[in-house]
């Protein structure tokens, strides 16, 4: 065990892991976090707390993560390289660890031009791969990026993102390999709709032996409407939505669209679960958190393993 978080215990026990996503509010209201945490509790093993997602200012990931933890759900905090330089990142990670946060997803971050402060100066002092290495060196070598030592290190299960659908396609598994070499313990992928292409990606991943070195959680997301499906297909860079998804969404009456979106999501979960090397799923249902319970149940992934049941696993590994 590296940090002994719930997520780590589930992954190491070999059970199929489920993570969710919780978008913090564009306000200082802690009730939003508690409400969303309540919707997800018991249905996921840990929940990602986004960090100014799509470059829109929201409550910070670390503070929302603490609120989520207090509400009884384990957070995966996110850290992007867009808004902070190496000093700010390391400082915030020391604080996050001191506050008891144990899982961290390292991201480069969406470009600031997409968000609500497009005139901001993007930092990008480091990139996600360099961030992973910095966190690993802090954790395992007790060293800051500059090489100085620290007496008490921050301890995180280190996560990274991977996008099997971006270009150049042959580089995608190689890039995940770089993240693993830098120190990633788990990865959550871009939303999978094109299962066939994801399977090809996984084949490359297995050829590189990466599935034995990193826990891979396939990203999934329910679609709300045929309009949303078309928008993602044509307008969102790095997304691959095949025609059959749009056709299935278009084939049901408007009032059944949400149900169909959830059914498609469940179908995809069942398919990716069969692919060798997939250790779990990451359900992204931002602003539709109440869909998660239904998805997890319909996918046959309940009940989630209880932390107490995992004590034995924990003892074995230590």
């Amino acid at each position: 065990m590296i940090v002994g978080s719930n997520l780590e215990k589930v992954l190491r026990s070999g059970q199929f892991a489920v993570t969710g996503e919780l978008g913090p509010p564009k306000s200082a209201d802690p009730k939003v976090i508690r409400h969303k945490a309540g919707l997800l509790k018991g249905y996921v093993d840990a929940v990602n707390i986004t960090d100014n997602q799509t470059a829109i200012v929201r409550m910070s990931s670390i503070s929302a993560g603490v609120l989520a933890m207090e509400a009884g759900i384990e957070p995966v905090i996110q850290m992007t390289c867009r808004d902070r330089n190496r000093l700010a990142i390391q400082a915030d990670l020391l604080g996050a660890s001191a506050l008891g946060l144990k899982n961290l997803l390292c991201l480069t971050g969406d470009h600031q031009s997409f968000g609500n402060h497009p005139q901001a100066k993007g930092v990008f002092d480091i990139d996600s791969i360099q961030l992973i290495k910095i966190v690993k060196d802090m954790r395992d070598e007790k060293k800051f990026q500059c090489g100085e030592d620290m007496p008490v290190e921050p301890r995180f299960l280190i996560g990274c993102a991977s996008n099997p659908f971006a270009d150049p396609f042959p580089f995608r598994a190689v890039r995940l390999g770089k993240k693993v070499a830098a120190g990633a313990d788990f990865t959550q992928t871009q939303i999978v709709y094109n299962v066939e292409k994801f399977a090809q990606f996984m084949e490359m991943v297995r050829r590189l032996g990466l599935h034995k070195k990193v826990f891979i959680l396939a990203g999934v997301s329910p679609i709300k409407s045929v309009g949303a499906a078309r928008y993602m297909k044509t307008r969102v860079p790095g997304m691959d939505v095949p025609d059959w998804v749009v056709e299935r969404m278009a084939g049901v009456p408007k009032e059944d669209a949400k149900k169909e979106g959830i059914r498609i999501c469940v179908d995809i979960i069942k398919q990716v679960k069969q692919i060798e090397g997939v250790a779990g799923i990451h359900i992204m249902a931002i602003e539709w958190e109440d869909a998660v319970a239904e998805i997890v149940e319909a996918a046959g992934l309940l009940p989630r393993p209880k932390i107490e049941d995992l004590q034995a696993v924990s003892a074995m590994s230590e």
Binding site: F124, D127, I129, Q130, A166, P168
Partner: peptide
């Protein structure tokens, strides 16, 4: 757009940058 040093981010598609 992000001055990356370790290869294309997840927004690289069909040779173009996600930003524009």
């Amino acid at each position: 757009s992000k001055s990356l040093l370790n290869g294309p981010c997840g927004g690289s598609q069909a040779g173009k940058c996600e930003v524009d």
